[in-house]
Design a protein around this nucleic acid. Structure first.
Lengths: 346, 346
DNA sequence: AGTGCTATGTGTATCGTTCTACATTTCCAT
DNA sequence: ATGGAAATGTAGAACGATACACATAGCACT
């Protein structure tokens, strides 16, 4: 394709080559590329044709020097959680026919790595960031948002003015779960939540909201005396020992609401090992309605927050921000409970 | 930090600022940055100190114009498969203390998107690519490798000279499974594999190798007449209907070897729905030994190929290539069977 | 003192775009 | 015709790093 006769290495086609081929200036080609103002149809057609014929692709690094890179960064704390898969599917779908390319960085749940990852994405001149359930919060997050367009998903900041947020109504989701369990005439309903890694983040975090919803619903239904929230860190080991402790203890709950599916599956595992049958000895409910809930060996009731929709919204909002929108938007979907065998008395 | 008195927007600290602060030339700072030859300890210390104090971070876009971006691209076909999580953990761990940053692109199992993604990563001047179980193969893959350093994991190309590969011995893994099942005195051992999306790729693909290993082991054990390979595409729906068909049919196998855990979990689900008990009515074995195998409700025998080790090797080999190694290296680990309840006669 | 080497440091062209400022042409109302 | 605005196209200076080519200093050995 680009064997330039002499023995040299095949060079990349540049904007200059396109300009020469089309018989126009470099600036004109750049205008076509950016769909900028001041280009006639004739010129646009000529340039488009040359680009096509030469197989021209703009070099993101060079664009980044002065303008946009058309790259969006997504930070994930944990690819293990299949909910993030749905989210990514939505993001990818939304960007499919655009110039934007999403690239994912993985922070393995530690805030030090997350901070490094974000810096690293800024070094790479990303046009904007989608932060998925970030550790970063409060003022530092707002500071960051002043340096680069941001959409946060999985963290509640309804009053933030510097960035957008996308969430489902976690409080409502938890309430729906409790009401569903109460309807099945369970009363001793406990909750297995996530340990907080910093003080005062109950209001902002997903699991904090779910706890609030749980407490409120329990109180509303006159089950205040049964409120019982236990927290475990994000490791397999700790989830297992915590679950075992709850289920072996003297007052084992009738039903256990887990803050995310992943944890619910561990609970089912521990319960099975202890010889408990589900839902007769213990009802279990998760959150996120990931594809694992559907497997017959799990058959797990869960809350659907339609991750794909959330992903789509993230992408949409971020691009709007990049294009200049200044006011914050906070998107929230209504969750719904998907009932399966793990929570239905027979 | 960088409030430059006048009302202007906070500017990024550049290499020039560092040079001025340290009282040296821009070229000297660049040398320190790249750990290039010809820098005295004294100068290095001075420059490092200035960089630290000013909070300098090199801009990847600018570096990319002439040199490296210190960014490595990883293409994943499907984040749903938890095996890739382990792989990523290895890659991230290997790059932790280096300048390199891995960024992941997701191709959703379609080769068109994969091709676009790869181009897009080249546009972004990535220094090298780790292709995980790519669709791309044969001559086009070799062509690509001549344009950018590449390591391929999850595709067997032992004779490739243009790029490195990292794999486990899939043939051996399958053989070990068959031998294990035969030891448990199963004879009618079937295999559920993945449908091929192109002709002649049996030798290169992971599932193709596993099929070969399965056939060879069956033949070696005198079970030739029981060889039975069924293939299903990578969608939930098709896996389910295929599994159902196999298990409902007149000659249901005694044991079913699934090419990956994900499929094995679906099989357990379908079997459960059909009222079959595992392993009494049907033994099931998977591949990859992902964390889901450990859950008591699955308790799935699987083949461990230590994804984290593979990830480490990918990163190591790719950086070697980037630094100039020309000859290909092909890394292969030995897999081992992790026996759990799903395949043990009681 | 002269020669040749190595080690260290610098000046500056260069990478491929974007974008401002400006030149030219076209259009239209007077 | 004429003037002025609008539309279209171009030249060329950035952007922030790298790396080549070169200058200089220090040192060992004639």
């Amino acid at each position: 394709m680009d064997l330039s006769g002499n023995g040299r290495r095949a060079q990349r086609v540049t904007i200059r080559d396109v300009a020469r081929d089309a018989g126009v200036s470099v600036a004109a080609v750049s205008k076509v590329l950016r769909e900028a103002y001041g280009v006639s149809d004739a010129l646009r057609a000529k340039v488009r044709d040359s680009m096509e014929r030469l197989g021209y692709r703009p070099l993101a690094a060079a664009r980044g020097m002065r303008g946009q890179t058309y790259t969006l960064g997504v930070t994930l704390s944990d690819i293990r959680n299949p909910f993030f898969t749905d989210l990514m599917a939505g993001i990818n779908a939304a960007l499919e026919r655009t110039q934007y390319q999403p690239l994912v960085g993985i922070s393995h749940s530690t805030s030090a790595i997350e901070a490094g990852l974000i810096e690293s994405m800024m070094d790479r001149q990303m046009d904007g960031l989608i932060l998925v359930a970030p550790h970063l919060t409060g003022a530092p997050l707002a500071d960051l948002a002043r340096r680069i367009p941001i959409v946060v998903v999985g963290q509640h900041q309804p009053n933030a003015t510097e960035f957008d947020t996308v969430n489902n109504d976690d409080e409502l989701g938890a309430e729906l779960v409790v009401r569903h369990l109460a309807e099945q005439s369970f009363a001793r309903i406990a909750m297995l939540s996530l340990a907080f890694d910093r003080a005062g983040s109950v209001e902002a975090t997903v699991n904090g909201r779910r706890e609030t919803g749980y407490r409120r619903a329990m109180a509303g239904l006159g089950l205040k005396q049964h409120i019982n929230v236990v927290r475990a860190a994000q490791t397999l080991r700790e989830i297992q020992t915590t679950a075992r402790h709850m289920l072996e203890g003297p007052n084992r709950p009738e039903a256990l609401f887990c803050w995310t599916d992943f944890v619910a599956l561990e609970v089912i595992s521990v319960a099975t090992e202890l010889g408990l049958s589900i839902p007769d000895d213990l009802a279990v409910v998760g959150y996120d309605n990931t594809f694992l809930c559907d497997l017959a060996q799990n058959d797990l009731t869960s809350v659907d927050q339609s991750g794909e929709t959330l992903g789509l919204q993230c992408a949409r909002l971020l691009i709007e921000r990049i294009k200049g929108r200044g006011e914050a938007q906070h998107f929230m979907v209504k969750p719904r409970v998907v009932v399966r065998a793990s929570s239905q008395k027979r």
